[in-house]
Design a protein around this nucleic acid. Structure first.
Lengths: 240, 240
DNA sequence: GTCCGAATGAAACATCTGTTTGAAACGATG
DNA sequence: CATCGTTTCAAACAGATGTTTCATTCGGAC
């Protein structure tokens, strides 16, 4: 096991990703992880020198996996239909939802991600930002294609609107269709949220279709309105 | 101390709200809370019969305070300019940001709220939903004023877009302008996020102005586009 | 077989957690 | 003053947590 990664090491990473995503850093003990991976507790400290380090590696692994897919999806959309705002927005969101909602463990990414973004430790902020910045910069680049004189801060506001919707509709699916994500240890599969916030669609595929349609329609109109407002306020690219 | 709430009890509630908002349920021990409130540890169990109950009361207190303000702001906007979609959206978001960003401890609400919504225990879900549902139903009612035959599920998608943006831009201000909100115990005032995500505005007032302007412009156009799409797909209120 | 470093395992460690205890202090009422 | 229930306090409790220890096992190299 010099060439190949130690079996217990990869088993620990896999179990840790699953558990950290479901219950958060504080909601999981290394004994839980070791039990799920069917290895000894000491293995965590032997292979990762502590729980924090294991968590960081999980974060790193899960973020690195996503960055490539996001950038690839964006690049494809941009080269296929250059300058087409709606196509870019639609392709990006579809890629995100397909990846996050349909693949096994694909939701782990956003759960860990959102937790870290909203309530995470500052030490891990750069890890998150390293994914966010190129991703959203690429989205922004696709948007700015037809708007050369656009103020970058305006793009930031637009990106924020897209990001907010993305997080909301992804988390909403997970909250209403999957089990509890809270730090509770006992398995209480479905919270009352499901009854109170009726799921917007029954199965993943129609949910994705509807979500992509809605966000695209909503956002393209929103983007154009914001750009129009900005153009009229600063005609001919006035810097003031 | 029969009529007026016990001093230590209210001091505990105040300290708990602050600490729970900053570090989350698991990030705070009752010893931390007792120390911040300058009371004995046993007081928590004496007055609240346990940490969970104290947390629930904090949540209840913070949610009850907000519901009235939200509904009042919405009602005012609706009666002043009935049927005006843009005015309703603008008034609602302004009320939210003024309340959440400018008042001392106003951010506690959204921090607790988002945490509970995304990663919270299912037992507290109804508490959150009791605030969310009337609030967003009221927003939806203002939107539906000119759209009597609108499918409720379409309104839910729109409300989701609004909610997602609201959460994002509120959290963004707190992340880039206030200290860490993570479960870290030690005080590490400013995370690297501030450098990586440059704040969109320097002071609260201009941030609120810009945020309200942006979200309103973005969302009103988005709403109208979605409504138009829905109208063309289901002319004359076809139910299919 | 012998040896050696890497990997595993059971047990112990120190610390922190929420909670409970029982005695002391308080404040009003008689 | 004595007495009552209420409130506070220091101390202790039982359990869980992350981590460490040290003996054992494993898999090749010689």
């Amino acid at each position: 096991m010099t060439d190949l990664q130690s079996d217990t090491r990869s088993r620990l990473l896999e179990a840790a990703e699953q558990l950290f995503a479901r219950h958060g850093f504080d909601g999981v003990s290394i004994r839980d992880i070791a039990a799920a991976a069917e290895v000894n507790v000491a293995a965590v400290n032997y292979h990762f020198q502590g729980k924090e380090n294991l968590y960081r590696e999980v974060l790193q692994q899960v973020v690195a996996g996503k960055r490539d897919r996001y950038l690839a999806a964006l690049d494809a959309a941009r080269t296929e239909q250059p300058g087409d705002l709606e196509a870019a927005v639609r392709a990006f969101f579809r890629a995100h939802f397909e990846d996050t909602l349909k693949t096994e463990g694909g939701g782990n990414f956003l759960k860990l991600f959102v937790r870290e973004m909203h309530h995470g430790r500052p030490e891990n902020a750069r890890l998150i930002a390293d994914l966010l910045i190129p991703m959203w910069a690429d989205v922004g680049r696709a948007m700015l294609a037809g708007e050369p004189g656009l103020d970058p801060s305006v793009a930031q506001w637009i990106v924020g609107s897209l990001h907010g919707q993305l997080v909301h509709f992804t988390m909403r699916w997970h909250k209403t269709h999957l089990g509890s994500e809270g730090p509770v240890r006992g398995d209480d599969p479905f919270g009352p949220l499901k009854a109170l916030f009726p799921p917007l669609a029954g199965d993943v595929d129609t949910y994705i279709d509807q979500a992509v349609d809605h966000i695209t329609r909503f956002s393209v109109a929103g983007i154009q309105a914001v750009l129009a407002g900005h153009r009229s306020a600063h005609p001919e690219g006035d810097a003031s």
